[in-house]
Computed example of a mutant assay.
Amino acid sequence: MKYVYSIVRFVPDAFRGEFVNVAIIAGSEATGEWIVRRVDNVQHARRIGGSVPITPVWSYLDGVENLIDQLGEDQLTEESLELNREWLRRESTRLRNLVQVTTPSAVLADSLEDAVNHMFEVFVVDPEKRTRKTRRAAVSALRSAFEATLSEPRDHLFERVSALVGRQQSTIDFAVANGSLAQLAHGWSFQTQDPASTVQQIKAWSWTMRDLREHGGVVRTPGDNREYAVSSDVPIRVVYVAPDTDEARRSLDEALEVFSNLEVTAVTTDEAYLVARDARDALETGHS
């Protein structure tokens, strides 16, 4: 699949042309998925920058990651729904000082994670070189599991559906249905730079899921806008990227308690096949 990417540079002295690559922004215009990977160790950047602070670069990247998070939760304003190659090109033209973004280029990869990690290895010097996996890895694991397990995934599997309850609207990664809704499934990651923020997002998501079950609502599929009523006992499943730090493990413990209170089954990406198997069984028995 084709993805676009740009390199984010810290330029402490534009006159001398000195810079250091500190991050990669990559995305897909086909799926609307975007990701940022930045260096974990800033010692190299600080050596180049000297007395010039790198803080504005981190602030910019925080803003981009916030836009991506909002995109995933359908919270962007109409004028902000421009995360595509043209948006990246405008950023490369607009940013010409301490923070610079290169003109977007194309790269072929099996997944967005593979694309950003490959370009990171090519262009960015990071003494720690710790590869994080965003929730996109969980979404990919779910997709692969569904496609390998469901007999007719094109007929029963719907991606990035809208959950509607009252005036609330939230995006759910997958819905499995055949006349009636059989399962909802969503992906999360605990290898983000701010696991505590992930927990807060999960709590907000869980309130919408609880309202769906307790007060009723519908799930609307993209494109054809088919609607499926959400029953109080509809199975909700979560697949997550396992944590790799103590801080993230503590966040996972908190999130698992949230899932348990909502009666949501949560498994790691290695166990995504269990979610797909449950969906297949629900289709065969006719969940209602």
Rank of each mutant, 00 (worst) to 15 (best):
M1S: 10
I7K: 09
F10H: 05
F10M: 01
R16G: 04
F19P: 02
V22K: 01
I24V: 15
I25K: 03
E29R: 09
T31S: 15
G32R: 10
V36M: 09
V36R: 11
V39M: 14
H44N: 01
R46Q: 13
R47G: 03
I48S: 01
V52G: 05
P53I: 04
P53R: 12
I54F: 09
W58I: 10
D62E: 07
E65Y: 10
I68T: 09
D69S: 15
Q70A: 14
L71F: 02
G72Y: 11
T77K: 08
L83D: 00
W87T: 02
L88H: 03
L88T: 01
R89N: 06
S92K: 11
S92N: 12
R94C: 12
Q100R: 08
Q100D: 03
T102D: 12
T103M: 05
T103Y: 15
A106V: 14
A106N: 14
L108H: 15
L108C: 02
D110L: 09
S111M: 12
S111I: 05
E113Y: 08
V116R: 00
F123P: 00
V125Q: 10
D126K: 06
P127R: 08
K133P: 01
T134Y: 13
T134M: 07
R135T: 11
R136G: 08
A137Y: 07
A138H: 02
A138S: 10
V139E: 13
V139T: 09
V139A: 14
F158I: 08
R160Q: 13
R160W: 10
V161D: 07
Q169I: 05
S170P: 03
T171D: 11
D173P: 14
F174T: 04
G179D: 09
S180N: 14
S180V: 05
A182Q: 12
A182G: 06
H186G: 02
S189K: 04
S189Q: 05
Q191Y: 01
T192Q: 14
Q193N: 08
Q201V: 02
K203D: 13
A204P: 03
S206H: 14
W207N: 09
R210N: 07
R210C: 03
R213N: 03
R213D: 06
E214Q: 15
V219N: 00
T221Y: 12
D224T: 10
E227C: 03
S232Q: 13
D233S: 15
V234P: 00
V238E: 00
V238D: 00
D244E: 13
D244I: 04
T245E: 08
A248Q: 00
R249Y: 03
D253A: 15
D253Q: 11
A255C: 10
L256G: 00
L256N: 10
E257G: 02
E257K: 08
L262N: 07
V264S: 02
T265Q: 13
D270Q: 11
A272W: 02
Y273G: 01
L274T: 15
D278T: 03
L283G: 05
T285F: 10
S288W: 11
